[in-house]
Write a protein that binds this DNA or RNA. Structure first.
Lengths: 189, 189
DNA sequence: ATCCCATGCGTACAATCGTACACAACGATG
DNA sequence: CATCGTTGTGTACGATTGTACGCATGGGAT
């Protein structure tokens, strides 16, 4: 009863916008594309999100939340006894070989935030949250930030070069940067 | 013999295209904007670069070359006696506080390459070259790639969040990942 | 029952874009 | 000198875009 207006509609548009970004990138985001994906008329998207920036921010906020939820889910389920570097490297490999698009999305956000002032806080929040969650698995916050940086950089390399993901090398690098010598033999050539 | 006329023309257009990307981002790259920046008529840009992709690739190739030249210049001039982690952290700080736009450009290339197939080799070459050059300062190639990843990730954090650059923390993280214990006290909080 | 207004919808408009094309200028070749 | 092909230029066209606006509708409030 109560809702004088229909919040479902708005959420469906956001979902559709996220889907559009997923498939065509931020450059492909537009009122019409979103309207088609959400199966609503054009006027509906312009009504709920008057400007394109509003739509983009809403879409990226959604994508961001989904990603952070996934990371949090993994962090809470990880075996605290196993060496964190190994677990992290294995999880990263699963993400990279499994849902590659999902990872690209995160960088889509970063990219947009470089130019779009309004997106900067969102990207910053994502990086901070990642570090905060990963801090569970390691000595201190500064290390967690470095780990996030290393993960981001390595992911970028896998996504951009066609080099396959090197799980052992990643694990060794993570172990070194975490200051734990769990299993850092000679880095794999 | 040859060209009395204009190899200059083409290069000037490329320079202008790079300038446009510098100022407005890849999204702002267009025949007209480049023509205006190069002070040539519209037809001139479409003549030398029929499609927009050609123009974009040329611009990013130029940007890429400039960046790699700068890195190479630094690597060749670095003091081989000093601890590499410190030198690297200091240089990175100079880049970040000095010419921030220059660094953003590199990520503009990376992110564009995520969506644009034709740019992938360029981005991959950049990452490989970076690792190859930095390999001078460290034990092996795998470590160099990890260092490149860490640098990329840390740079991203500085560019996206408004956290100031932490030179000592970076130096410590670099030292740890390079396996050298030059000056890695407790990581700065 | 009647009125009001938030919400939804369809269309239209101005601007911008990439690209194509017709023509001008000029150097090289016979 | 005549001719031709390369280079340079201006304009135009079709497509697509963000956004605005007029109108329909349906449920609360009176």
């Amino acid at each position: 009863m109560g809702r004088r207006y229909d919040p479902e509609r708005r959420q469906r548009i956001i979902d559709a916008a996220a889907a559009v970004v997923r498939e065509r990138g931020i450059g492909g985001l537009g009122h019409r594309a979103v309207a088609a994906a959400a199966d609503v008329p054009l006027g509906s998207t312009t009504y709920h999100f008057a400007t394109l920036d509003d739509l983009m921010i809403a879409a990226l906020r959604q994508i961001n939340a989904e990603w952070l939820a996934e990371v949090e889910h993994w962090v809470e389920g990880v075996d605290p006894a196993a060496p964190p570097a190994d677990e992290l490297a294995r999880w990263l490999g699963e993400q990279l070989t499994g849902d590659r698009v999902r990872m690209e999305l995160e960088y889509e956000l970063y990219f947009a935030a470089l130019r779009h002032e309004g997106l900067r806080p969102l990207a910053a929040e994502c990086l901070d949250e990642m570090a905060r969650m990963l801090a569970r698995l390691m000595p201190d916050a500064a290390t967690a930030r470095a780990v996030v940086a290393l993960i981001d950089g390595l992911t970028l390399q896998v996504l951009l070069a066609d080099r396959p993901y090197d799980r052992e090398g990643t694990s060794a690098a993570l172990a070194r940067i975490m200051g734990v010598d769990g299993d850092n033999g000679p880095p794999a050539g």
